[in-house]
Design a protein around this nucleic acid. Structure first.
Lengths: 163, 163
DNA sequence: AAAATACTTGACTAAAATACTCTGGTTTAT
DNA sequence: ATAAACCAGAGTATTTTAGTCAAGTATTTT
């Protein structure tokens, strides 16, 4: 999983649908484009991925648009980010089995592995619905135990920004 | 704070010094270069930042090298990553005071803010010493309460990779 | 004093990734 | 039929990153 502004846009779009597509009315990409300041072409690209990931379904023709494929309470931020990003290519660090450099597991492997799990646990605990409900305190969530996290982590380039 | 492979290299180098510079002996960049597979030139660039950040001190001349400026138990991963990365330029999201787009705080602002804090709390809880002590379980750390976190968060491009 | 070792600094560059845009479709409701 | 709306792939400009190069300066050992 990569966290990029593509993922950010994906989440914004999903939240927009949940906020504006009440009563089963589909939301058009043109409407999302205006509200979220995302170009239509780029949205089309994003929704291609979201649709392939089973997160939205579309209704074609005039009056059509997009709907969430599941209740907002069942779609996590991790789901969205995973959907819009391509599968990963290994770059710096080989996978956990092979070790990091030339068969030797690097001294910091555990650290980056733990960090990735830590991030994932957060993103997996937050749903689209929670983002829409402003009163939810995202700073004190109940996270799933680490044992339930099945991901394997790699650190690549940019990761986050905390000034 | 950005998490990049530059930060990764920085942490590797700091861990290397702690592991190999016992008894107050300085560690040369050439030695780190060999052990960690980082080019000497690039290490020089990294250590310029680490030194400016007060994390290492140098001893010049033959027999010289670098020492940790503080005990490994007092240097956090957040410290290292902060030191090697340039100050941040705002791109997508304005700061917390100004709002996100044209004065309007975006619907997902809280989410990315909370995510940044979540990541920071982890990196601030892990010290160089902990990374060196393989028996520490980084997956179940005691984190500082959110109230004590003074950072402000922005999401930019790539953020993390969790396959 | 000379020489070797090692740190210091700034500028520069190549490669990769990202964030889009563009063009041309196809489907479906009215 | 027509228009709204989705679908798809290729392509491109920008940004960022990772890393190099060249030319120093400081310190210790011999």
């Amino acid at each position: 999983m990569r966290l990029t502004s593509k993922g950010r846009y994906g989440v914004s779009a999903m939240v927009d649908i949940n906020n504006n597509g009440k009563e089963g009315k589909p939301v058009t990409l043109a409407a999302i484009s205006e509200r979220q300041f995302i170009s239509l072409s780029y949205l089309e690209q994003l929704f291609r991925s979201l649709r392939a990931g089973g997160l939205v379904r579309s209704i074609r023709g005039p009056g059509g648009g997009y709907l969430l494929a599941h209740p907002a309470s069942e779609i996590t931020i991790a789901n969205v980010i995973q959907a819009v990003n391509e599968p990963i290519r290994t770059t710096l660090c080989e996978n956990a089995v092979r070790g990091c450099h030339r068969g030797r597991r690097c001294d910091t492997h555990q650290l980056w592995d733990a960090m990735g799990k830590h991030i994932y646990r957060f993103l997996d605990a937050v749903t689209i619905e929670m983002v829409c409900q402003k009163e939810v305190d995202l700073n004190n969530l109940e996270l799933k135990p680490v044992e339930d996290i099945v991901t394997e982590v790699r650190m690549e380039q940019k990761i986050a920004k905390v000034s």
